[in-house]
Each structure stands twice: as C-alpha cells, then as structure tokens.
C-alpha cells in the first residue's frame, strides 16, 4: 500500500489520469446540490430568506409552487385520506421532475442520508473493514411493500414513523432531538455490518424512486465502451455495480437503464479513459455517440427495456 490518501481508492486511477478536480466533478456537483437543497429550506428560519417553506415531505416554493413527496402521498392515499388538489399537484410535479432527471437522482443529488452512507462506505474502505453481512438487493422492495401494507392496515402514513431520510432532512430544517440515534444506526449499519446496506439494500424511499427511474429520461451511458480497459474503477466506485454490467459489457444499448442507478456520475469521475457520459434516452445533441447506429431508438425499444427489467 502506498501512503495514506483521503481520496477513495476507486477514484485513484481517475485522479492519476485526469487530475483531482476532473475525477471529482460529479461528486462535487452532487454535494453542492445536496447542500443547496437543504440550504434553500434553512435560509428561511436561519436568515429570514423564504425561498422555500416546509421540508422535503411537502413544500411551497416562493409562496406559490407546491411540491410533495409522491411516496408519502401514496401512503396517505392508501391510509384512506382523500387527496386534495394541491397535494396531487405537488406530488405530480415531483414525479414528473424525477422522470426527467432520473428516479434515484433523488438519492444521489438530494437525499442527505446519501452523504451519511457515502461517508460510512469511505471510512469502511479506509479502515479496511471487509465484514459484509450479505442482503438481497430486493429487500428494499419488500420493505417498500411492507410500508405500503402497514399504511393500509394502520390508516397512518406508516414509513414516516421511522424514516431516517425524513428524520435527517427535518433535523436540518426543524431540529432533531434524539433522532440522531437513528442516523447513527444507519451509519453504523453501513460501516460495520453491510456494505452499502441502507441505500443499496433496505431503503424503501430509494426503491420507490427506483421504480420511477425505470422510465426516466436522463441516464448515464457507456458511450465509449470500446475504450474500456477493464480496470474496475467504475465497479468499485459505484453504489449499485450491477447496473453497469449490461451497458459496459453487454451487446445492447450502452445506456444504464436499471432503475437502481442513482445517476450520481461517479463512474464518469472514476473512469481514467472517459468511457461514461451523462446522456438522455432521447436523441438530440446529448445523444450517445456509440458503436452501432441508433442507440437512442434501441434504448427505447421493448427488447432492451425487457432485458433491463430482467436484471434487478
């Protein structure tokens, strides 16, 4: 082992090839986005600048635009509360937004728990902790189903009684009290028990946005996969490595189509030969330039969608 470095090992090759800044471009953008999302809500109570009122569950932007979390909205409907127009509009706008930018972009670009679990994973790597209590990736869908079932049976918005995502964002915007214990529990789970345990295996909020993500427009693509040197940097840096395989090593579309992808761009950062790029499913200027002619069309065709669903 070489001398100690704060940089994650998976990014080391990217840093060597492209410099620190270019190997952390998407990471820096993501952290800026996560901080900004909280900051616009905190500016009101702290500085009296009311851009956004409320919190991630439901909010009012500049006093007019309503936004609402569609997963909470769904639980509320299942719990038997007839939705009112403003809540439907808010949840619809958020759903539409994530269909455009990538469902689990919520996880990578907004959710503050992502910072907690990324830090846990980084520390895990630096401390050389290899213990990994394997969980099935689909556990999150069972938890999602359980949360919806519990809402139906109990007549309450059930997941909000325990949701660490809500606890943490509310902590910054309203205060937390003993809620830190839940966040510490998530951190320790990811650090000591299971690699990428919370966000990658258990969180039903991520699972919900993952379902939206299956249809989302913005996607990462392995547009220059013929240049791949099989160095594994992308697999090591990725929170959901299984999503890369069909795009990078498959014969079909170079687009990463799995709903599990959080559009974090870490693979773009880490790749020393710039195989990956942020693109869209649609044609146009950002259309992936890949071997094989009609990438945009084949990405939308039934066969490649079916294939992506076959690999959960």
């Amino acid at each position: 082992m070489t001398r100690f470095s704060l940089t994650a090992e998976a990014r080391a090759e990217g840093v060597a090839a492209k410099g620190w800044l270019r190997a952390h471009k998407w990471w820096l953008l993501r952290r800026a986005s996560q901080v900004t999302a909280l900051a616009v809500f905190m500016a009101g109570p702290l500085a009296g600048i009311w851009i956004a009122r409320g919190n991630f569950a439901s909010s009012e932007i500049l006093g007019v635009l309503p936004l609402a979390d569609p997963f909470i909205f769904l639980q509320s409907a299942l719990a038997g509360h007839p939705p009112i127009a403003i809540a439907m509009l808010g949840a619809g706008l958020i759903t539409l937004f994530y269909v455009l930018v990538g469902g689990r972009a919520y996880c990578g670009w907004i959710c503050p728990v992502n910072v907690v679990t990324d830090t846990a994973h980084w520390l895990r790597e630096k401390l050389g902790i290899t213990r990994d209590r394997k969980l099935d990736r689909r556990t999150r869908y069972w938890v999602l189903g359980g949360a919806l079932l519990a809402s139906l049976v109990s007549g309450s918005i059930a997941w909000e009684f325990v949701n660490p995502v809500s606890i943490l964002q509310r902590a910054f915007i309203f205060g937390i009290g003993a809620g830190w214990s839940v966040i510490v529990a998530v951190f320790l789970l990811d650090l000591l028990v299971t690699r990428r345990g919370w966000c990658g295996h258990l969180c039903p909020v991520g699972a919900f946005y993952g379902v939206i993500g299956r249809a989302s427009v913005t996607r990462v693509a392995a547009i220059r996969r013929q240049d791949c040197t099989s160095c594994s940097a992308c697999f090591n840096v990725c929170t959901e490595p299984h999503v890369i395989v069909p795009a990078l090593k498959g014969e079909g579309s170079p687009l990463i189509l799995s709903g599990d992808c959080v559009n974090c761009g870490s693979c773009i950062d880490a790749c020393p030969v710039d195989v990956f790029a942020m693109t869209t499913r649609l044609g146009g200027p950002s259309r992936p330039r890949a071997p094989g002619a009609d990438v945009g069309i084949s990405a939308l065709s039934g066969s490649s969608l079916r294939r992506s669903r076959g690999r959960p």
Binding site: S156, S166, G175
Partner: peptide, 29 residues
C-alpha cells in the same frame, strides 16, 4: 387516525404560525 393518514409532517403550519407556538415532534415528544 384521520390526522395521521393525512399529515405529511412538512411543517408548513409551523412556519405559518407567527408566534412560534407550533413545533414538529422529535423522538420522545
């Protein structure tokens, strides 16, 4: 129960209160 099926815990009521009467419950409240 009807309240818990409808309240999304967003705190817009807390922000609207001019007297800081309302707060959002933390663990143990």
């Amino acid at each position: 129960d009807a309240f818990l099926s409808a309240c999304v815990r967003c705190g817009l009521c807390v922000r609207a209160c001019p007297f800081d009467t309302l707060k959002l419950a933390e663990i143990g409240d």
